[in-house]
Simulated assay, not measured.
Amino acid sequence: MTSTLVSFLAQDSPNPLGGPIPMMVIMVVMFYFLLIRPQQKQRKELQARIDSLKVGDRVITTAGIHALVHNLKEKTVTLKVAEGTMIEFDKHAIASVHKKESKSTAPAEKA
Rank of each mutant, 00 (worst) to 15 (best):
K80A: 09
L68K: 13
H70T: 02
A106C: 00
A67N: 03
V81C: 06
A93L: 13
A95S: 12
N15M: 12
A108F: 15
P20H: 10
K80C: 01
K99Q: 06
I87T: 09
L46P: 02
Q11F: 02
T2V: 04
V81E: 11
P38D: 04
I87M: 09
A63C: 01
V97S: 06
V25S: 04
G64K: 10
A111E: 13
Q42M: 10
V59D: 04
K44G: 00
A67C: 01
A95T: 01
T62Y: 13
D12P: 06
L34S: 06
H70S: 10
S96Y: 13
A10W: 00
R37S: 06
K44I: 11
Q11P: 01
Y32D: 06
V6H: 07
L17C: 05
T62M: 15
G84R: 08
A108Q: 14
Y32A: 10
I94F: 06
I94Q: 05
S52W: 01
T85F: 08
I65Q: 11
I21S: 02
M1V: 08
I21K: 13
S104K: 14
M23S: 15
R58G: 00
K44D: 12
L5K: 11
Q47P: 01
E45G: 04
V59W: 12
P14R: 14
E88G: 00
